[in-house]
């Protein structure tokens, strides 16, 4: 029991960290065509995420791998039931990854334009699809003893779409804040921070709408009624969202970016705390929900995986953090310049 719960939490952590990290580079990808008109700014944006996007995406691979290892039945059914959506997600990620790596390796206007479009579309679609997928998981999938009764179009229900829009906006704000702390030069950074401030309004609207709609479209709040302490999670999410606006207004971009990180993590935890003990509820009959009891690996395997996670995940966090700091350095001078100018 205890190891199943541990892995339920680790599963959540892996997804949350993935969204927190890849969120800003997906967001930067979505804003890219609107934000950057000239080639120099485009390269600046690409250079902020170039060193880190690959490492960020591995959190997705690890979240997928951990789902496979710890909850094989959930992995098997989630990926095969959502086949067409997964295919689209795969292609979005492939296209944007290739765009990022290949754009700078040849010249020519069409070459650049093609990869720019691919980078934007891949980033936008990946964010949207991940949101739609999680929205539908919160809502539950139409599955019973006979298997799955849904379709790709069925996933695009109003609640799923709202979750998609929420993810897109969360990542867009996150991406704009990332650019505000990493773009070299005061003007660009200011422009990015102002953009984050503007995108914040629709984000607030979507987040509020999502919280309300969740009460009608899902059973997530049932756990909250049973354990009122859980309200801390959406409380943190709400406070962090408000902080983003406050901090951007007062010019503290780094703190605003961190608040955005907290927002994303808290949103994921808010949803998954409502799911517990389900990983994927059935919208037809709770007896066919995939729970941490009926879809997990054996306790032996979970123990082995716990050892691996406890030893290596902290190491990963340490060296990734180190890399983030190394690539933060040049821009600290940019930020200092900005702060000086603000006086």
């Amino acid at each position: 029991m205890i190891f199943r719960v541990i892995w339920f939490i680790l599963w959540t952590v892996l997804w949350a960290v993935y969204f927190m990290l890849d969120g800003f580079d997906l967001g930067a990808g979505m804003l890219y065509p609107f934000f950057a008109r000239d080639e120099n700014l485009k390269k600046d944006i690409l250079n902020t995420i170039g060193p880190v996007w690959d490492g960020n995406e591995v959190w997705l691979i690890t979240a997928g791998g951990a789902t496979f290892a710890a909850f094989p039945t959930t992995y098997a059914l989630m990926f095969s039931y959502l086949y067409s959506a997964m295919l689209l997600l795969l292609f979005s990620l492939i296209v944007r990854g290739v765009a990022l790596e290949f754009r700078g390796k040849a010249e020519g206007q069409n070459w650049g334009k093609t990869w720019d479009l691919a980078f934007f579309l891949g980033s936008f679609l990946a964010a949207l699809l991940l949101g739609v997928a999680f929205g539908n998981i919160f809502k539950g999938l139409p599955m019973d003893a006979h298997g799955y009764h849904g379709s790709l179009l069925g996933l695009l229900n109003p609640y799923g779409l709202l979750a998609g829009v929420l993810f897109v906006l969360l990542f867009a704000v996150h991406g704009a804040l990332w650019l505000s702390i990493r773009l070299p030069g005061i003007d660009k950074a200011k422009k990015a921070s102002a953009l984050a401030g503007r995108l914040w309004y629709p984000l607030l609207l979507a987040a509020a709408g999502f919280l309300v709609y969740t009460a009608f479209a899902t059973h997530l709040y049932a756990n909250y009624l049973g354990y009122p302490l859980l309200w801390v999670l959406p409380g943190i999410a709400a406070a962090a969202i408000l902080l983003i606006k406050f901090l951007t207004l007062t010019g503290r971009d780094m703190a605003a970016f961190l608040a955005s990180c907290v927002t994303i993590v808290a949103v994921v935890f808010t949803g998954v705390a409502g799911l517990y003990p389900d990983l994927i509820p059935s919208s037809l009959d709770p007896a066919y929900s995939l729970t941490l009891f009926n879809s997990s690996s054996s306790v032996y395997t979970l123990k082995i995986m716990t050892v691996v996670a406890v030893v290596f995940v902290p190491a990963v966090i340490i060296y990734q953090f180190w890399i983030y700091r190394i690539f933060g350095r040049t821009n600290t001078s940019g930020r200092a310049e900005k702060e000086k100018a603000a006086y």
Binding site: I61, A69, Y75, S297
Partner: peptide
């Protein structure tokens, strides 16, 4: 998955 998932997850980590 109980046995095959582990090396995959270890590979990623």
């Amino acid at each position: 998955g109980d046995i095959f998932g582990a090396p995959l997850a270890i590979e990623a980590t």
